[in-house]
């Protein structure tokens, strides 16, 4: 167990607004081993970003709440840390790359200073040393260090994302969370960025959670894959398990929906039916409204438990409980 860098257990996150409670993350558990990449897939609204923000301790104040569970990084429960202690973790031990590089950088600060900032925060070094480090980071992500003094608007989207990656990796974090790092980019640039991320991840042996809509990206990059639906982890396994032997009806439907030629980056609801509303979950299995394997028990029964199909291939579906299969 000690090789697990991250261990999330029974995590429940709600957004509580005046009108409603959104059950964004419902009792999910997963582990991440050192140096591995875990792919987190699921449709829009599945709770992927919420999970990531929960780990970062960056849920929107007042609205987002961790209701229960634990998030252990190197055996330390992050949820028990004070805000001050969490600031030492963020940027240093865990970094996050956000979805939209166009807005992720401060428009009135030079990109170099924005990289140097995180170095100054976490490393004992002078301003000059931080600058040199920032220039090295720029070079590492394929941008000439001479552009240190340029502002974000002087870069293209792909280059901005490279800069965001440079910020995230500047302090050599143990864990990198990349939330759809390429969704906002042109298809050709997506590949470049992903190649670069994988190369850097290998070089630094960084553990990584890669959030994406794109199963193709998971197949290419990841060791394990977790499929989320309506705040739940419905299937988890090695990439081989998930790709060669998908078990949950939702995962199967996701495969069917992959467009053959052009990867559609728009947020289409590719699986037939509407995405389940996390503020109004059905009783029993949350996927039951859209499931083509649905049995009589699926709505009546309490939510399906996790079944291990062997070797840690987990699935959360009543099909794999004896009661349903006998029918």
């Amino acid at each position: 167990m000690s090789e697990n860098i991250l261990s999330v257990k029974n995590l429940v996150i709600h957004y509580e607004t005046d009108e409603e409670v959104v059950e964004a993350v419902n009792n999910i558990s997963f582990d991440l081993k050192k140096g591995e990449i875990l792919g987190l897939v699921g449709e829009t609204g599945a709770g992927k970003t919420t999970t990531a923000l929960g780990i970062m301790g960056l849920l929107p104040t007042r609205v987002g709440h961790v209701i229960q569970g634990s998030i252990e990084l190197d055996g330390e429960n992050l949820l028990e840390k004070s805000p001050r202690e969490m600031r030492k973790v963020r940027g240093k031990k865990i970094s996050m790359i956000f979805q939209d590089p166009m807005t992720a950088l401060n428009p009135v600060k030079t990109v170099g200073d924005q990289i140097a900032e995180v170095v100054l925060l976490h490393e004992r070094c002078s301003r000059a040393e931080a600058m040199i480090r920032a220039q090295k980071m720029l070079a590492m992500v394929g941008i000439v260090p001479e552009r240190y003094k340029d502002y974000p608007h002087q870069f293209s989207g792909g280059m901005k994302q490279r800069i965001v990656i440079a910020i995230a990796l500047a302090c050599e974090p143990e864990l990198l969370i990349a939330d759809e790092p390429t969704t906002a980019l042109d298809v050709t640039i997506q590949a470049q960025i992903l190649d670069m991320m994988r190369k850097l991840q290998k070089e630094h042996n960084t553990s990584m959670i890669l959030i994406t809509h794109d199963l193709g990206v998971v197949a290419e990059m990841c060791d394990h894959c977790a499929v989320m639906y309506a705040g739940e982890l419905v299937e988890y396994g090695t990439v081989e398990d998930i790709f060669d032997n998908p078990q949950h009806p939702y995962t199967v439907a996701l495969y069917k929906s992959i467009p053959s030629l052009d990867k559609d980056v728009d947020r289409l609801h590719v699986v037939p039916g509407m995405v389940t509303d996390p503020s109004n979950l059905p009783s029993g299995c949350s996927f039951s409204d859209r499931c083509d394997k649905k049995g009589d028990m699926c709505n009546k029964h309490e939510a399906p438990g996790i079944v291990d199909l062997g070797n840690g291939h987990l699935v959360k579906c009543l099909k794999y409980k004896p009661e349903v299969e006998e029918k």
């Binding site: 970062m56 960056l58 969490m86 600031r87 030492k88 973790v89 963020r90 940027g91 240093k92 970094s95 996050m96 956000f98 939209d100 807005t103 992720a104 950088l105 401060n106 428009p107 924005q114 900032e117 995180v118 925060l121 976490h122 965001v164 910020i167 995230a168």
Partner: peptide, 14 residues
């Protein structure tokens, strides 16, 4: 509420 403020928080900035 801008994204770059979230980026700054993610850096561990106070």
């Amino acid at each position: 509420g801008e994204d770059y403020i979230r980026t700054a928080r993610a850096k561990g900035q106070s």
